[in-house]
């Protein structure tokens, strides 16, 4: 019986990365270190390795790209842009692997898709130094347990990502930002069909409209019925700390708690000047977390000190 092309794991680049990770001693991958302290400080004696880089295979006609984890998101997006495409990964100066391990959405996730939807296939090195493949290269796939979902946002505590296949999507013909000082963000969300982003800082509302030019013009006309809007070049400056609210809560932020803020309406994400109080998981969910971690990393060698439950 001939094996599926998916089974091929004799890629020398992945094998070399697996060798570097090895099977003993605490180990972590450094990308661009843009979110290095997320989920806790790495234990002092941890050996640092780097993930392979480069775009392996880009198929614009499939709307997929196979890329090594150490590639920067900026470099990836530059390549995709040449073919009129993009991904749901946020561009914050970091690597593809780092973006996936942090699990943070782009603030334009309503238009570009949530981060978790972007990952189709993942190849990571296990705590035992083995290359594990999960998911698949097609845009639709329910073959087995969905480990890519588990890996996104896991901070490298279950496996060290070497290479992924990501879903790409077409860049719309037109992308425009508008700002209003008198329209309420809730009215904006109701007035337009599918804004790519709506931001609110307590005073002004920003909205990104994308699509075919006549549709964007028509959406703007609908917006102008609820307030005055002016074209702007982009988003306001974002405060440094990320908070996670429900969409309803994000419409009613109390700056006495968060400090100055920019709320991503519809998503529930809020950027604020104060830090979000520590969150954690408890009870039965915590028990599942701990069992999953113990099953994937019995000796606790992968990114010791970090815990996705404490993000």
């Amino acid at each position: 019986m001939v094996a599926s092309p998916l089974l091929v794991s004799d890629d020398p680049v992945l094998a070399a990365f697996a060798d570097e990770v090895g099977d003993t001693g605490p180990v972590s991958v450094a990308g661009s270190r843009t979110r290095w302290s997320l989920g806790g400080e790495l234990a002092d004696d941890t050996r640092i390795v780097t993930a392979p880089t480069g775009i392996v295979k880009y198929q614009p006609e499939e709307m997929t790209v196979q890329v090594r984890a150490g590639t920067t998101v900026a470099e990836l997006h530059e390549t995709l842009m040449a073919a009129g495409q993009r991904t749901g990964l946020p561009e914050r100066g970091g690597t593809v692997g780092g973006a996936l391990m942090a699990g943070e959405n782009d603030l334009r996730a309503l238009g570009r898709g949530r981060l978790r939807e972007a990952l189709l296939q993942v190849r990571y090195v296990s705590a035992e130094g083995r290359i594990i493949n999960s998911g698949g290269p097609t845009v639709k796939n329910v073959s087995g347990f969905d480990l890519p979902r588990l890996i996104v946002g896991s901070l490298g505590t279950l496996g060290l990502v070497a290479e992924v296949i990501l879903r790409t999507n077409p860049i719309p013909a037109v992308s425009r930002w508008y700002r209003s000082n008198d329209a309420s963000p809730a009215d904006v969300v109701e007035a337009v069909l599918a804004p790519s982003a709506v931001l609110f800082d307590g005073t002004s509302t920003w909205v990104e409209l994308e699509g075919h030019a006549p549709d964007v013009d028509a959406e703007l006309t609908r917006l102008q019925a609820i307030g005055s809007f002016e074209a702007v070049s982009g988003i306001p400056e974002l405060p440094p700390h990320r908070w996670s609210f429900t969409p309803a809560e994000a419409l009613a932020i109390d700056p006495a708690i968060t400090g100055s803020y920019v709320s991503v309406v519809g998503l529930g994400l809020v950027f604020a000047s104060q830090t979000q109080p520590n969150r954690t998981v408890t009870g039965a969910v915590q028990e599942v977390h701990e069992r999953v971690k113990a099953n994937f990393d019995p000796t606790g060698r992968l990114n010791p000190g970090r815990n996705p439950a404490n993000k």
């Binding site: 699990g103 943070e104 588990l150 996670s244 429900t246 529930g268 969910v285 999953v292 439950a309 993000k311």
Partner: peptide, 10 residues
């Protein structure tokens, strides 16, 4: 219901 629930995506 929040934007980015903490922990692994169980």
């Amino acid at each position: 219901l929040d934007a980015e629930p903490q922990g692994l995506d169980l």
